[in-house]
Structure formats: structure tokens, C-alpha cells
Amino acid sequence: MRKNVIFRGKLLPLLLLSPQLAITIVFFFWPAGQAIWSSLLREDAFGLSRQFVGLENFAEVLADPTWRGAAGNTAIFAFSVAILAISAALLLAVQADKSIRGSGAYKTLLIWPYAVAPAIAAVLWLFLFHPQIGLIGRALNAAQIAWDYRLNGGQAMLLVIIASAWKQVSYNFIFFLAGLQSIPRSVLEAAAIDGARPMRRFWTVVFPLLSPTTFFLLTVNLVYAFFDTFGVIHALTQGGPAKATETLIYKVYVDGVENLNLGASAAQSVILMAIVIAMTAVQFRFIERKVHY
């Protein structure tokens, strides 16, 4: 944690720290404090006076059926994205780890979607699934399957899940590949000599050794699905149709920015903060095991 040989001086280090600290205080701690404070207040209809209401905003948010709906959407959305992106990445990483010709080219061709912004990923999939101009959307309608993600909530959810997972596979792929490459060859050879077939070798030897990576990726993917996919939903469905794809983060935005219901929005923000803190804590509890890889 600390070096034995250090420089003396008290002013210089503070000076070096000051830009980071200034930004952290002004744009992180002050607003976070404001969010917590205003989650305890209520403004009257004209914005003239504010009243301390304690935890009333929280009680109201938690009892609100639209918030509960958004929480349910978020759970379905986040777990679907995480499971889809992790399993696809694991399958691809195991194949790319085999000694086959062109594995370098495959790797390059599988990591680039990481660079695509979530909102742009959404737009790309819109081009495919648009009921009138999209290749797949039109094909589905031609096959007598009524497809319009702008009218059907389930279809809208499916589309935002696909677009969000598509972008995240690359990230998981890179980490699985790193995990696979750090498994000692001797372990695999020992299993092979014992006569274990590839499938059995994977489930009894490789997969357990990858479990710290998998767990780490699960939390990262859930955080991604919670927060970074705002762009996907905003670009693709705006939370619709009929709030079918409204996630918690999207609802904070709608209530705070569009409906200007500051107390409720602040209370929702504080709930989300608690969720992030819990997830980050879980992630750091297991990071020790992960870095040994």
C-alpha cells in the first residue's frame, strides 16, 4: 500500500491531488448529497416552498405500481442481457482458445462491437428489425408473424435485450479468453490422459476454473444492463410501448427531466445508488480471487 522511500512535502501532493478532488467534490459528492437531501423534501405544486417529509418519497416510490413495473422490467432485462452475453461469449471463447488456423483473425472480428456505443448498437438492430424497412422485421411479417416492436411490448423488450447483449459479448469474450489462457495446459492434458472427453473436460475442469471470471462478469454485466443501456432504450423504444421497456434508470430520467417531479426522481436516484453500492461491494469482495488469474 505504501512505499518505503518517499518524497517529503505536504503542499505539493495536495496540489497534485487538487484537480481530481475539486471535480470529485463539485460533480460527485455535492450532487449525490443533494440527491439524498431532496429525496427527503417535497416541493409544493408551484415550487415555492419545500417541506421536509422524511422517508415519505421513498414509501411513495416503492408503492408506486409504475415504479414496481420498471423494477420488474429491469430485472428481466438485466438478467436476460447478462445470461445471453455471458453464455455466447463463453461458447465463442472456448472455440477461439483451440489451436486452430486463423484464431487471431477471429479474435479481431469478435472484439470490435465493444467500441460501438449502446445507442448506435440499438440503431443498427433497428435497421434489421424495423417492421417496414428492416430485413428481419419484414421477413417476420411476410411469414405471418405480426412483428412491430413499436406496438408489442414483448417484442420491444426482446429487441432491446438483443441490442444490449450484442454489444457486451465482446467484453465478456476478452475476459473469458484471458481466463482460458491462464489455465495450465498440464491440467487439461492430465484430464485428457485420464480419458475425459472434451465436453466432460469442459464441465468438470475448465468451467469450475473459470467460475471466478464468470462471477465477475455477471456483476459487470448486470451493472452494464442497469446503467449503460440507457442509450439503447432511449434510441429504440423511449421506454415504450406502454412502459414495457421502461427500466429504473429510464424512469429516473423521465420523472426528473421530462416530468420534473424532483422529489420522486431524487428518491429513485438514491435507491439506485444503494443498488450500485451493493453491486460494487459484491464485485470487490470477489476481486481478490479474480486477480490471481
Binding site: 470529485t24 463539485v26 460533480f27 460527485f28 455535492w30 450532487p31 449525490a32 443533494q34 440527491a35 431532496s38 446503467f227 440507457f230 434508470i249 429516473v252 430520467y253 426528473g256 427531466v257 424532483l262 426522481s265 431524487a266 436516484s269 438514491v270 439506485l272 445508488m273 450500485v276 453500492i277 460494487t280
Partner: peptide
Amino acid sequence: ITLMLPVEVRIIPTFQV
């Protein structure tokens, strides 16, 4: 600790600042 405060959870007050 700022790791735990992504912009999405403090939208309105940060905007106000």
C-alpha cells in the same frame, strides 16, 4: 468511492450544478 456514483444516479443534481 466515486466508482459507486455513476452519472445516471445523480442526473438532476449534477445537471443543476
